[in-house]
Computed example of a mutant assay.
Amino acid sequence: MKISKKHLIAVIIFISVFTEIQAQYGNGYGNGYGNSGGYGGRQRSSIPQAESAPEKPEPLTAEQIVDSEMPNITEALGLNPFEEAIVRTTLTKSIQKRIELQILKLTPEKTREAIEKIGKEQDEELKSALPEDKYEAFVELQKNRFKEKKKKNKKKKKKD
């Protein structure tokens, strides 16, 4: 059987076209979308995946912390606008210093000393700027809030 040149050329063209098609669309073992036998493309899993890792909420700034607490403080102490401005600036300044301390990551002893110093400065500023009764009410308010948080934590531990 003699093969003509036309048939030989047709077979060569057919083979080259077939290899092109196979290279583009996989070798027939895949799903027909070019993942070539399951080795590429997007894979499906029966295990549900989270869309993305939940982002950590950004820490509040000193101004944001004070803004959230000021309505309660103003109401509890009955501050006028001038006194409110003094308390706001003093608290913002001391909270900002505490945030900076956290960033520095000092030893526990140095951190404790620095926090005590910041607290004393805050107390001195508020004592000199506020009337005696409002200052005492502020100090009492701070103590009560701290005790309430401890009590809540103890109750939660007892329930668990």
Rank of each mutant, 00 (worst) to 15 (best):
Gly40Phe: 03
Arg88Gln: 07
Gln64Asp: 07
Arg88Thr: 12
Ala50Trp: 08
Gly34Val: 10
Ala76Gly: 09
Thr61Ile: 07
Glu83Lys: 04
Pro59Asp: 09
Gln43Ile: 11
Thr89Cys: 06
Ile73Tyr: 00
Leu106Tyr: 05
Asn72Pro: 01
Pro71Gln: 14
Gln43Phe: 08
Ile47Val: 15
Lys97Ile: 01
Ile103Phe: 11
Gln49Tyr: 08
Ile103Trp: 05
Glu113Leu: 13
Lys97Cys: 00
Thr107Phe: 10
Pro71Asn: 11
Pro57Ile: 08
Ala114Thr: 12
Lys105Thr: 06
Ser94Thr: 15
Ala85Phe: 06
Ile99Arg: 06
Gly41Ser: 07
Pro54His: 09
Ile118Gly: 02
Ser94Asp: 00
Ala76Val: 02
Asp67Tyr: 04
Val87Trp: 01
Pro59Leu: 09
Leu91Ser: 05
Ile65Phe: 04
Gln102Ala: 12
Leu106Asn: 10
Ile118Pro: 03
Asp67Cys: 07
Leu79Thr: 04
Lys110Asn: 15
Leu60Met: 15
Gln96Ala: 14
Leu104Trp: 08
Thr92Ala: 07
Thr61Lys: 07
Glu100Arg: 10
Lys93Arg: 14
Glu116His: 15
Gln102Cys: 06
Gly78Glu: 09
Ile73Met: 10
Pro54Val: 05
Ile118Met: 06
Thr111Asn: 15
Met70Trp: 09
Ala50Pro: 07
Gln64Met: 07
Thr90Gly: 06
Gly78Met: 03
Pro81Val: 09
Thr61Glu: 06
Glu63Phe: 08
Gln102Tyr: 13
Pro108Ser: 08
Gly40Arg: 02
Ala53Asp: 06
Val87Tyr: 02
Asn80Thr: 07
Glu63Tyr: 05
Pro81Glu: 10
Arg112His: 14
Ser52Gly: 09
Pro54Thr: 09
Arg112Pro: 00
Thr90Asn: 12
Ile103Cys: 07
Ala53Phe: 12
Gly38His: 01
Gly34Pro: 09
Ser94Ala: 13
Met70Gly: 04
Glu113Ile: 10
Ile99Cys: 00
Pro59His: 04
